[in-house]
């Protein structure tokens, strides 16, 4: 896991409003794998993603991709924020939101190209939302809204994908669609990083895990991370896992 295609976070320390949110975090994220960031409430999972994307400042550390700072390579990044950070009453349609994924590629002072429209159409089809193209986003269910944002991130044609709590409040069908697309992205050689609050059955869909609670508890493939001792350290003994036919159950 040391090749330069990895996303490398080294010694990351983040203070948020004078409180230390994350201390001395080091891990690598490999392409071709679906990586989950897990940990209890307030562990700093979203804070870490935001710091990695340069959305909040960090005090110490480095975040490198291809040996260059990640935030200088924003053209390769797609980020889907938590659903709660979006005003869903905003007057926009599904189409408007997906086209936002093409704004940066289109460039200043230019209208969207035919190619961009084709890409947006295809990504909507992929997440099963083509029929909702002209619907206002506020009229969709939580799962449908999440799929629209997934389509927007796909339209960005990125190499590194960050998803913050994509499964919060979504239906089973959406969860299956989203995990299928994560797998597809990983198979295409992309880096897929997913903040996941839920420790339920869905955890089996990840390849690698990063277990956080203000500091890094463990990282690596999920079998190594989901050890009794690690979980005890992260959740102070409130969660235990049972390995059953190589499936994990909380």
């Amino acid at each position: 896991m040391t090749n330069s295609d990895c996303l490398k976070v080294e010694n990351l320390t983040v203070n948020y409003r004078q409180v230390e949110a994350l201390r001395n975090i080091t891990f690598h994220v490999a392409p071709k794998r679906v990586t989950g960031i897990i940990g209890p409430n307030g562990a700093g999972k979203s804070t870490m993603i935001k710091a990695m994307l340069g959305l909040i400042p960090y005090q110490f550390g480095s975040i490198l991709f291809h040996s260059q700072p990640l935030i200088q390579q924003r053209q390769y990044i797609a980020y889907v924020p938590q659903r709660s950070q979006i005003d869903w009453t905003y007057p926009a349609t599904v189409w408007d939101v997906v086209m936002m994924g093409r704004v940066k590629k289109t460039g200043w002072l230019k209208p969207f190209s035919v190619m961009s429209r084709v890409i947006a159409k295809n990504t909507l089809e992929k997440v099963g939302m083509s029929d909702f193209c002209h619907r206002p986003i506020g009229e969709l269910s939580g799962g449908q809204q999440q799929r629209v944002f997934l389509a927007r991130s796909l339209a960005q044609e990125a190499d590194i994908f960050f998803f913050d709590e994509p499964f919060a409040g979504v239906d089973q069908k959406t969860e299956a669609i989203i995990f299928n697309i994560f797998r597809e992205l990983a198979n295409q050689g992309k880096i897929v990083v997913v903040v996941n609050h839920d420790l339920g059955e869905s955890i089996n869909n990840f390849d690698d895990l990063i277990l956080l609670n203000k500091t890094l508890i463990a990282w690596g493939n999920k079998e190594e991370v989901l050890q009794e001792e690690n979980l005890y350290n992260a959740y102070s003994g409130k969660v235990s896992f049972f390995s059953h036919n190589s499936k994990f159950v909380a």
Binding site: K50, L53, G54, L55, R74, Q75, I77, A78, Y79, V80, P81, Q85, I86, D87, Y90, A92, D96, V97, M100, V103, K104, R152, Q156, F162
Partner: peptide
């Protein structure tokens, strides 16, 4: 619509 999303793509 989405300040964080806009910032993340480098606007």
């Amino acid at each position: 619509f989405d300040k964080l999303g806009a910032e993340s793509v480098g606007l």
